[in-house]
Design a protein around this nucleic acid. Sequence first.
DNA 1: CGCCCGACCTGAGAGC
DNA 2: TGCTCTCAGGTCGGGC
Length: 290
Amino acid sequence: MPELPEVESLRALLARSVVGRVITKVEVREPRLRRPVRPQLAAALRDRTIRAIRRRAKYLLLDLGADVLLIHLGMSGSLTHRREPQGGDGVEPRSAGRLDSAVRLDPRHDHVKLMLDDSSALVYNDPRRFGLIKLLPRADLGAAEELKALGPDALSDAFNAAYLAAKARHRRTAIKNLLMDQRVVAGLGNIYAAEALFRAGVRPGRRAAALTPAEINRIVDATGALLREAIGAGGTSFRNYLDARGRPGRFAPRLMVYARAGERCYVCSTLIRSRVLGQRSSCYCPRCQR
DNA sequence: CGCCCGACCTGAGAGC
DNA sequence: TGCTCTCAGGTCGGGC
């Protein structure tokens, strides 16, 4: 679920609310995530100060000084900052009064809770348990398995037309698969790869190597603009994604093709189609995209 | 190496 | 109502 814009929105919110806070206690209620949460984690986090929050691709990094807490939300994860009613098993997001969406986090999937020194808590909730929480020494972050193979961040200057053209050369794979390959460019998932290609006017199934320089240019430009707009809207909420305050993102109504198969294109009224690429359904407008 | 596929999980929604 | 099936925002490892 969460792709770059959702994680970046989360980073920005948490940077305001939890930086400077001290972790007083950690509860690991369900260690069985994509990789088991290590038993030592809770003790290692205790009394650590959250100094800064960063993002790399779809990973959130809590800077704890000598170590970094790496968090990935998988397909269905969320991280919410809540007021913890003392003594209670609180599940109310911090600004609960503004929760106008139908989305509710199921407390059974509150797998890890970081209690903070202002009697609030950071809660990791993840129904499908595809996420990851892991403590890494800051010194060799770059060498970490999870991060070392990542390509340039989709929002970085390093993701430019010359770079993408070089990566696309001799590749028979579909351009959408290439954009979703985190080793090529980091941060795009199924929603934003589809949306970037719509904006660029390129069909998702086109062979990467067959794209023209103009198309490569449009893809890179469209990706940057799309991600910035999505971040501005707090990301996309489809089913259970919620931001740090327990609110959904506001970008979903602006999606042009994702999850719209069978509906009419907002630009040309042609029916949006879907095909499977790399085992992911890929929506596109057969008229606007060539 | 590039590419494809299944696996890992739970829940929502459709169809019967 | 309740069952069964498909699909879902992501990675990872194995096989060819």
